[in-house]
Amino acid sequence: MEKQLVKGASRNPKRTHAAILEAATDEFAAHGFGGARVDAIAARAKTNKRMLYHYFGDKEALYLAVLEATYASIRTAEKSLDLTHRDPEEGMRELALFTWNYFLKHPEFLSLLATENMHQARYLKRSDKIAAMHSHFIGELSDVLKRGEATGIFRPAIDPVSVYLTIAALGFFYLSNRHTLSTIFGRDLTASAAVKAWGEHIVSVTLASIKA
């Protein structure tokens, strides 16, 4: 059976690579780095450990590949906003809503971030791709803020990293704690109306923090 899987996988290496990466993303998101099992990843991908090691080397390298692919996905999706050609205020609103909605649609992203933060970014620090991804994004955000400053809409000398941290923090905290906070305050923060309202709140807070 194993030989058949290896032979079949070799016929379509791109598909096998993608299947392993997708399976690993699910496994690491669900169980963290320590709890994830290579056997389980191989089973999810309908391949075997030999193929997994062939494509990714070992568990640590596979985990790093998952992290890089996860960040690449959100950075790639953000490009559709075309911030460079948008009105500054509209661009900031769309970025805030995009980030919130991306978090909602990709809980695995938040799970992987939580896992890597527990490791103090031990594996992410090994990446030679992450810095370039985020440098481009921060450059676009900086351009939007500077154009807004030039027209008198935004305050001068706004730090783009701080702006993004504001957006991400408001979304991440809400989603990471929505069940406990719902219980504490007796309010269903998972309800669609509450979720939509929080998205608009993120927009309001973000714009209020940068407007002149």
Rank of each mutant, 00 (worst) to 15 (best):
Q4K: 13
L5W: 04
G8P: 04
N12E: 09
R15L: 15
A18F: 13
A19D: 04
E22L: 05
A29I: 03
G32P: 02
F33Q: 04
F33M: 07
G34V: 01
G35V: 11
A42S: 11
A42Y: 04
A45I: 12
N48E: 13
L52A: 01
Y53W: 09
H54T: 11
H54N: 09
D58G: 11
A65P: 02
V66H: 08
L67I: 10
E68W: 10
Y71N: 11
A72M: 01
A72N: 03
S73E: 15
T76Y: 05
A77I: 06
A77V: 06
K79L: 00
S80F: 00
L81S: 13
T84A: 15
T84Q: 14
D87A: 05
M92F: 12
M92N: 14
Y102G: 10
K105S: 15
F109G: 00
S111F: 09
L112C: 01
T115P: 07
E116R: 10
H119D: 04
Y123Q: 08
L124I: 07
L124N: 02
K125M: 11
R126S: 09
A131F: 14
A131I: 12
A132N: 05
G139H: 11
E140P: 12
S142C: 14
R147E: 12
G148C: 06
A150C: 13
F154E: 01
F154P: 08
P156E: 04
D159T: 14
Y164G: 10
Y164T: 10
I167S: 04
A169P: 01
F173Y: 11
Y174C: 01
L175Q: 09
H179I: 09
H179P: 00
S182G: 03
T183C: 03
I184A: 08
I184K: 07
R187G: 03
R187N: 07
L189R: 10
A194E: 11
A194M: 10
A194I: 06
V195E: 12
V195C: 11
G199S: 08
E200Y: 10
H201A: 15
I202T: 10
S204M: 09
S209Q: 03
I210H: 00
